[in-house]
């Protein structure tokens, strides 16, 4: 067999995977997006740009998503970073593995059940009841943007914690000693060494969470009371309720396009910021 033949054989499984998992579904979505809705729902083959022309009908959903995704990513980052920092830098190495497992264990249960726990905690008989008891009455937490952010920060915690943890964990502790030796107090050491050195992990975590948040619908529906409408919710409704597969596909294709553009821009930016560094291991 020629070298070229061998290469093709070796690449075949990866190529097949790529084709089945990525190219085929995307192609189907793309084809559907140029079709029409059947009288009783579903898809009727056609070639029309009507679905794309109708996109402004979901403008609010896109707008909400483009706000939710970065804000939610930031919220997840703000919660995850201190946790990852504690686990990687401060925690006793003896307990590190156990603590890490404790962070993951809740995520073995379904997001649905975990969201119900938050519905209870943030609901009238949870924290507001406690606040009422100490004299702060009338606080509403559930079904607010706040509760959605809490749910997102919590739901995406491991995705954000892990890349940052790995980064901080393998950070050479001698660099921190060197910084201290050169006269930097601990907080400046954090800002000048720890934080910049952990940026690749932060970038990876943010990217993962951002991409998933672009399609998120469950947490806003459960913890936001369904009052805020995201592209994910629009897709669920279009495919499962009004069964407008053609329009749903156009919305999905647009979402994928927006994601590609944002993620590419983001990676360009990160690469430029990290161009000087050895440890830019984003992808």
């Amino acid at each position: 067999m020629t070298q070229r033949g061998r290469n093709l054989v070796l690449l075949a499984p990866a190529g097949a995977w790529f084709l089945v998992m990525l190219v085929v579904p995307l192609t189907v979505v793309l084809i559907f997006s140029f079709g029409e809705r059947g009288a009783a729902g579903g898809y009727v083959p056609a070639f029309t740009l009507d679905q794309y022309a109708n996109l402004p009908a979901r403008w609010t959903a896109f707008k909400n998503t483009l706000i939710l995704a970065p804000v939610g990513t930031l919220a997840a980052l703000l919660i995850a970073y201190p946790l990852a920092y504690f686990l990687a830098v401060r925690a006793d190495p003896k307990w590190k593995t156990l603590l890490l497992v404790l962070v993951i264990v809740p995520f073995w249960t379904s997001i649905l059940i975990r969201s119900y726990a938050w519905i209870f905690i943030l609901g009238g008989r949870g924290i507001p009841a406690l606040l009422d008891w100490i004299g702060i009455g009338g606080v509403r937490l559930i079904n607010t943007p706040f509760s959605v952010l809490v749910g997102i920060a919590y739901g995406y915690l491991p995705l954000m914690v892990f890349p940052i943890f790995v980064n901080l964990d393998r950070l050479d502790k001698r660099l921190l000693e060197a910084s201290s030796d050169l006269g930097a107090p601990p907080w400046r050491t954090f800002l000048q060494v720890t934080l910049p050195m952990s940026l690749p992990g932060v970038a990876t975590g943010c990217l993962l969470v951002f991409i998933l948040l672009m399609g998120e619908f469950l947490i806003p529906a459960l913890l936001g009371g369904g009052k805020v409408f995201f592209v994910g919710n629009a897709l669920v409704d279009l495919f499962l309720q009004s069964r407008n597969w053609a329009f749903g596909s156009a919305v999905a294709a647009t979402l994928v396009a927006i994601m590609l553009v944002t993620v590419t821009a983001y990676m360009r930016l990160i690469r430029r910021l990290g161009a000087q560094r050895e440890d830019v291991s984003l992808m």
Partner: peptide
């Protein structure tokens, strides 16, 4: 006295240079 307050500097075994 913490290290950052001492008029002392160190050359570390593997240099511990800041890669960033």
């Amino acid at each position: 006295l913490e290290p950052h307050r001492r008029p002392v500097n160190m050359v570390f075994q593997h240099y511990a240079l800041f890669p960033h």
